[in-house]
Amino acid sequence: MARKDDITGKGALNGYRSSKSNNKTKHKFHQNLQKKKFYVPEEDKWVTLKVSAKTLRTINKKGISAVLKEAREKGTLIKDV
């Protein structure tokens, strides 16, 4: 199972950690993913999605229906909802 946001498709970023002596070690910066259930009134069903904290704030602001519609138009929706 990939660590990706089901709506935006965003995943982990690569980078380096730097020690005091400036030694570099590879590191992954993972998204802050949360597993949440949403009720979609147009389809009259509950949907479980893995979304990042940023996407969750967007859903709270715009509503799940509007966010899913935008994701379908952009083509970023990973999970078939």
Rank of each mutant, 00 (worst) to 15 (best):
K61N: 05
L68S: 05
T48N: 04
Y16S: 05
Y39H: 07
Q34Y: 14
W46P: 00
L13F: 13
G11V: 10
K74V: 08
T58P: 00
L49G: 01
N22W: 06
T48D: 06
I59V: 09
I78P: 00
K36I: 14
E42K: 03
Q34T: 12
T76V: 09
H30G: 02
K36S: 11
K10L: 09
K50F: 13
G11D: 08
N14Q: 13
K24R: 15
K36L: 15
K61H: 12
E43G: 06
K10F: 04
L33G: 07
K4M: 12
L68V: 04
Y16H: 11
I78T: 12
V81D: 01
K50S: 11
S21A: 11
G15P: 08
K62L: 10
G11A: 12
N60M: 11
Y16W: 10
D44T: 12
A2R: 02
H30F: 12
T58H: 02
K62Y: 15
F29R: 04
I59D: 02
A2G: 04
T8Q: 09
A53C: 04
F29A: 01
T48M: 00
A2K: 11
E43F: 13
K37S: 03
S21F: 08
V51M: 01
G63M: 04
D5E: 09
Y39W: 13
V51K: 05
T58L: 10
V47Q: 01
E43Y: 11
T55D: 02
K61V: 05
R57W: 00
D80Y: 13
G9H: 04
K24C: 09
K61G: 00
L77R: 02
I7D: 10
K54D: 07
V67K: 03
A66T: 09
D80V: 13
E70Q: 07
I7N: 11
L49Q: 02
E70A: 11
I64R: 11
K79V: 08
G63Y: 03
Q31H: 07
N23G: 00
L49D: 04
N22C: 00
E42S: 13
Q34A: 13
L68P: 01
T55E: 11
V67N: 07
K62P: 00
N22T: 02
K10E: 14
E43S: 14
Q31T: 15
S21D: 12
K10N: 05
S65Q: 13
Q34I: 14
K4Y: 04
V47F: 06
H27D: 04
M1Y: 13
F38W: 14
E42N: 05
V81H: 03
M1W: 10
V40R: 07
A2L: 15
I64V: 08
T48C: 05
P41K: 15
S18H: 12
K24N: 04
A66R: 14
A12R: 12
L13W: 09
S18G: 05
K45R: 15
F29M: 00
D80A: 07
D44G: 07
